[in-house]
Computed example of a mutant assay.
Amino acid sequence: MTLSRATRLTATTAAALALSVFAAACGESKDDNSSSGSSAAASTNSSSSAANPNAEIKKGIKVVQIPKQLGNPYEDIEDNGTKEAITSVGGTFTRKGPTDAGASTQVPIIQSTIQQKPDAIIIAGNDPDAVAPALKQAAQRGIKVVTQDSDVAKDARTLFINQASVQTIGADEVAMLSEQIGGKGDIAILSATANAPNQNSWIEVMKTELKKPEYSGMKLVKVAYGDDDDQKSFQETQGLLSAYPNLKGIISPTTVGISAAARYLSKSPKKGKVALTGLGTPNQMRKFVKDGTVTEFGLWNPADVGYLGGYATAALVSGQITGKEGEKFKAGKLGERTIGKDGEIILGPLTRFNKDNIDDFDF
């Protein structure tokens, strides 16, 4: 699927990003980003109860957000969207997460959160299975579990807030790169961590797409992992160009990876010779588009992913929805939304950013 260059995001914009090198140490740490509305407690509804779409949103719901890692600019924007939604309905929002995106680093944070007895946990999973037992324990204690951006095992959560369909994201990235290299040449993928559920789902779609006749001239030679770390992603880009001198293009479906790769390419003799596309934010990638390092890339508004997740969680805690396919709820400024198969709620399609439209966006 190829999206129009004129496609525009309809949501509010978020703060500008700055690239950061993430800490290598593991462990739990709490973000200072804690905000509250009403302090009244809210009860937790059983997922087996019938939905009441006319139920009022309960005041004082307590929500804990667990991102993949603290210090990730993309996660910061997304989680601020969640905070906006939760506080707008009078709830309490607390954010805490690990300092790296390791497969199991979120587990002790989930376990400690259970002891706090919030109404809901919203999590972007680092690994679909590693966190599942702890999340199931949370559900057994009556805590609603919602995933956003990166899903976990389906039986460990009720809802999944997806940026766009997995098929759309993977297919569009292949299409963008094909357009930029004329459909021919060796290509590589620079991903985040090897266990990241969203990354792996998109990569599987990319591999399937590359088997189609229209992409027969493109050959995937390597999937590299930068672990959503700026410096490692930079080094992995250098390694790809060294190991594969005939490389024609790189897809990086991670905002950390694409910006690090662009930074390396911008100072490399390969600038303009090796195409780079993937998922990035306009503010992060603007200079690389304007200096010719990058022609086009795509994304959604991460703040809207978090905002949708916040309203879906509030509706779930309040009994407006139970997670069943076909149930509807109102998501504030994003309007009415419908739950799809397996509890999935999709934000919308990708927007493509290039020299013609990148200055129209500020996030």
Rank of each mutant, 00 (worst) to 15 (best):
P133Q: 07
V145R: 09
Q148G: 04
P133A: 08
I110Y: 06
K30G: 05
Q148D: 12
D127A: 03
A156I: 00
A41H: 09
F160E: 00
D76G: 06
K68P: 03
Q65L: 10
L135M: 07
S88T: 00
S165Q: 14
P128F: 00
S165P: 04
R95F: 03
V107H: 04
R157D: 11
G60W: 14
Q140I: 02
I109A: 06
K59Y: 07
T92H: 13
R141V: 04
G142M: 12
A139H: 00
K62P: 01
D119W: 05
P118F: 05
C26V: 10
P108G: 08
A134M: 02
L159I: 14
T147F: 00
N126A: 02
D127L: 05
P133V: 03
K136Y: 01
S38K: 11
G91W: 04
L70Q: 09
K30V: 14
A130Q: 06
K30M: 07
A25H: 05
N80Q: 14
I61Y: 06
V131F: 03
Q111S: 09
K144F: 00
D119Y: 05
S150A: 14
S47F: 02
S88Y: 00
I61R: 09
V166K: 06
A130Y: 05
I109P: 10
A23C: 05
S43Q: 15
K59C: 02
S150E: 00
E28N: 11
P108S: 11
D100T: 13
